[in-house]
């Protein structure tokens, strides 16, 4: 299977405790700059794929109130309630199928508008049992690790600092004159069954990576670097071991800016693009309690 999606441009508002401005202004700043970077006008955009959280944004169906800023005014708009890498491969599917020629993929977070961001993760817990116990959501991951290892696992990491950010990438058909020299060539997600007790917590990540590499027909040994969005509770050594790569190939986000909500994967992708692609480069993310929802995309030079 071969599908190459052109990367025309990108933009990032670097993660920060507070980025001044309204949420729609943050998003517009990022999407409009990505268009400038791509040399593409809004008239050439067919639609937008985005990753956002109504809970983080404090809006019901937040994208409906943010349409003007994403660039989807009177255009196609698709949203994932998942990490932004899922929006990337959704956009790639739309371009690859011929349903669209050029799209914006964007994601954001403005946690600084939330009075108590620390209260949000607990809402992901099942309400009648787990949430009533009021334990840290990271404990879910620890319990999975405990089942995997058969040992006691501490949940002792301090909560991450929530950050504001906005990121956008313009993708287009590989043959588009503004496509540039980089392509998205592999796409994978953890679409298999939920983990059974005792199964490796990184199995979804392994599945997503394996699917992306198989799609692109690229062996893991050819991958130069792996940019990781999210997965903050998992060490680089464990990720490297799970993916059978040297730890030196793992690139993590700054731990102080790692909690980027659904934007984590897209921020990692933009960081990879900004640092330069010198060979097959994986971008991975995993979100949700127990990091069961994993995504991977592969970026290559043409």
């Amino acid at each position: 299977m071969a599908l190459k999606i052109g990367i025309a441009g990108w933009s990032l508002l670097p993660p920060s405790a507070e980025i001044p401005g309204a949420l729609d202004e943050l998003i517009y700043s990022s999407t409009s700059q990505a268009l400038v970077d791509a040399g593409i006008t809004i008239a050439e955009i067919d639609g937008v794929c985005m990753a956002s959280s109504d809970l983080n944004d404090g809006r019901a169906i937040s994208t409906m109130t943010l349409t003007g800023s994403t660039g989807s005014f009177h255009k196609s708009e698709m949203r994932v309630c998942n990490d932004a890498l899922a929006a990337v491969w959704m956009g790639a599917a739309e371009v690859g199928s011929g349903a669209a020629q050029t799209l914006i993929v964007c994601a954001w977070n403005k946690f600084s508008d939330v009075v108590d961001p620390a209260a949000i993760p607990a809402l992901a817990l099942e309400p009648s049992m787990h949430r009533s116990l009021k334990y840290h959501p990271d404990a879910i991951l620890s319990l999975r690790e405990s089942q995997e290892s058969g040992t006691i696992v501490l949940t002792d990491a301090a909560p991450l600092q929530p950050n504001d950010t906005a990121a956008a990438v313009v993708i287009t058909t590989d043959g588009h004159p503004k496509a540039g020299d980089l392509v998205l060539s592999g796409f994978g997600s953890s679409t298999g069954p939920y983990l059974r007790p005792g199964e490796p917590v990184l199995k979804p990540t392994q599945s997503a990576v394996a699917a992306a590499l198989k799609f692109a027909a690229v062996p893991i040994s050819d991958v130069r670097r792996i940019f990781v969005g999210g997965l903050h509770r998992i060490s680089s050594a464990d990720i490297a071991e799970a993916l059978s790569v040297p730890e030196s190939s793992i690139v993590r986000e700054d731990p102080q800016t790692a909690d980027l909500g659904y934007a984590a994967g897209l921020v990692a992708l933009v960081h990879a693009l900004e640092l330069g692609i010198d060979g097959p480069t994986l971008v991975i993310s995993a979100a949700g309690l127990g990091v069961e929802s994993a995504n991977a995309v592969l970026v290559e030079m043409k």
Binding site: A22, L23, V115, D116, P127
Partner: peptide, 19 residues
């Protein structure tokens, strides 16, 4: 039925134009 509550406060930044 188990009682529950979902309350998250926000301070929406509205930007200079809306201000």
């Amino acid at each position: 039925r188990i009682p529950g509550e979902w309350h998250i406060g926000y301070q929406y930044t509205i930007g200079t134009f809306a201000s």
